[in-house]
Design a protein around this nucleic acid. Structure first.
Length: 510
RNA sequence: GAAUCGGUAGCUCAGCUGGUAGAGCAGCGGCCUUUUAAGCCGCGGGUCGUGGGUUCGAGCCCCACCCGAUUCACCA
């Protein structure tokens, strides 16, 4: 049939030849299905399946499994190999005399490679060395792979530690070819399963409280709800520019105006900024808005929800992250921002003017420039001196009004808003406020942002006339929060790069 | 965007002061019916990230570029 192309490696050519040979034997290399009764781990965990001594009589139970061949140990007329399915791996014992000469010698020994899919039916026994193994009575070819997969080997040394040889460890290849990473590095699957369970736990926690999961536009004519640079695109039929959302805040608040008491959305957001260990151009937040509540209530809510997440994932409130053990047991400390800064730097910023704060920033060796307003300067000081030191989950409260154009003025502290950020492992994981629902004030704040923009702050917010119209119709007092799902997933899975909690992190094209 | 480190066989890596590329696993041929990094005998496999340059000669030295990792800067 198809001659091997010159650009193919020797191993790729050989595998294509094997494909042709299978067809010549009237074996479909890509059949349509297989009747699976058991997964690998189910068999290993179910003692009652083991026949001892090995029992091939009709009364012993049969299992049928399917998966990839991952290792092979061929000893003439009998072989051991492992099959990997979606739950794990199990060893199979295969004998020529059980399945026939052609299937064994030709189909299995000659034409089956590591990575190929096969189905096995047989009974379960324990080998001399005590490994639970399926003794194959039927062998079926289920899919040819024509590209060799990496072949890491795991072995336990005398100390009982698992040592991996030839691990598929090149990070670039692992990110670019996540499918291969998932095949050969089983711990990767665990990370992503945990991430999904984390999201499920949060969703259940909110659903139990009757908050409504909603969907809002990703393509927005005016981007808002955060300070960030957007991705821009164009709609041809309407002939208008649109932006990929940087946040969904303003839409969820419109729904609060519309009469929902609690709405949330797991939102893919997009920010046209640098990539790093903590930043991917698209990332996930869950935003939640609840009517009749304020930011104090939201702190209670958040610490309870995250404690619940930790319990669900780790059966404990304590999670090991790098060198630290982080305890999510509620309540978490609540420290006003100025107090936190004073604790770390000795400077009390309360009531200070722009120029005074600029001078303090310089004293603290913070690089400043003209476009930085008071809010930005304080944020810089905080980010440099306080944030990295907050390992245990902590609420930092009461932010300067200049850096929070969507938050409500503090009920008692002048110049501040009712806002908090949750910090954990030295990074922000959530941002929340008592929502600003005074339309006159909101308009003034947008106008303040417009000035900052004119002064060169590219991330200052744009005035959204429709959003203002919405809250002019009246928005109940509300609390809102955004929780960074990727950041939280990093903590919950002890991953030190955001790329390790994203299946397909953004990469430059090959 | 800056600095540092890296890119050699399918995978993991070695490659000296520049002399024309190696190992283990994987692959191919053979032996082997309870092995487990199975073993034993034999064999093949490479535009050394890309493009220039220096040199009799470049994986190695020089220049430019591409890709990645880490740290830093901005942002969640």
């Amino acid at each position: 049939m198809s001659n091997a192309e010159p650009s193919l490696s020797e191993q790729q050519q050989i595998r294509r030849e094997k494909l042709d040979q299978l067809k010549k034997l009237n074996i479909n290399p890509y059949p349509y299905g297989y009747d699976v009764t058991h997964y690998s781990t189910d068999i290993i965990q179910d003692e009652s399946l083991i026949t001892d001594p090995p029992d091939d009589s009709e009364k012993s139970e049969r299992v049928s499994i399917a998966g990839r061949v991952m290792t092979r140990r061929i000893m003439g007329k009998a072989s051991f190999f492992t099959i990997q399915d979606s739950k794990g791996t199990i060893q199979v014992y295969l004998r020529r005399d059980d399945i026939g000469v052609e299937l064994y010698n030709t189909v299995f020994k000659k034409l089956t490679d590591i990575g190929d899919f096969i189905g096995i039916k047989g009974f379960v026994f324990k080998t001399r060395t005590g490994e639970i193994t399926v003794h194959a009575e039927a062998f079926e070819f289920l899919g040819k792979t024509i590209r060799p997969i990496p072949t890491p080997k795991e072995v336990e040394n005398e100390a009982g530690e698992t040592v991996t040889y030839d691990a598929f460890s090149d990070k670039e290849l692992r990110y670019r070819q996540r499918y291969v990473d998932l095949i050969v590095n089983p711990e990767v699957r665990e990370v992503f399963v945990k991430r999904t369970k984390m999201v499920q736990a949060m969703r259940e926690f909110m659903n139990e409280r009757d908050y409504l999961e909603v969907e809002t536009p990703i393509l927005q004519p005016i981007y808002g709800g955060a300070a960030a640079k957007p991705f821009k695109t164009h709609h041809n039929a309407l002939d208008i520019d649109l932006y990929l959302r940087i946040a969904n805040e303003l839409y969820l608040k419109r729904l609060i105006v519309g009469g929902f008491d609690g709405v949330y959305e797991f939102s893919k957001d997009f920010r046209n900024e640098g990539l790093s260990r903590f930043h991917n151009p698209e990332f996930t937040q869950v935003e939640l808005y609840v009517a009749w509540k304020d930011y104090n209530w939201m702190m209670d809510f958040m610490e309870q929800m995250i404690e619940h997440v930790a319990q669900t994932l780790h059966a404990s409130t304590k999670v090991t992250v790098g060198k630290h053990e982080i305890d999510f047991k509620a309540p978490w400390p609540r420290i006003p921002m100025y107090e936190a800064i004073q604790n770390e730097t000795g400077h009390d910023l309360t009531g200070k003017s722009d120029d005074e704060i600029r001078a303090i920033a310089k004293e603290l060796h913070i690089e400043t420039d003209k476009s930085m307003g008071k809010g930005k300067l304080i944020d810089e000081i905080f980010g440099e001196y306080v944030e990295p030191k907050l390992i245990q989950p902590t609420f930092i409260t009461d932010y300067p009004i200049e850096m929070s154009p969507l938050a409500k003025k503090h009920r008692s502290k002048d110049g501040l808003v009712e806002r908090f950020e949750a910090i954990c492992n030295g990074k922000e994981i959530a941002n929340a406020f008592t929502e600003l629902n005074d339309p006159i004030d909101q308009r003034a704040r947008f106008e303040e942002q417009a000035k900052l923009r004119a002064d060169g702050d590219e991330e200052a917010m744009t005035l959204d006339e429709d959003f203002l119209r919405a809250i002019e119709y009246g928005m109940p007092p509300s609390a809102g929060i955004g929780i960074g799902i990727d950041r939280l997933a990093m903590i919950m899975t002890d991953s030190d790069s955001i790329r390790d909690v994203l299946f397909f992190p953004q990469m430059r094209p090959e």
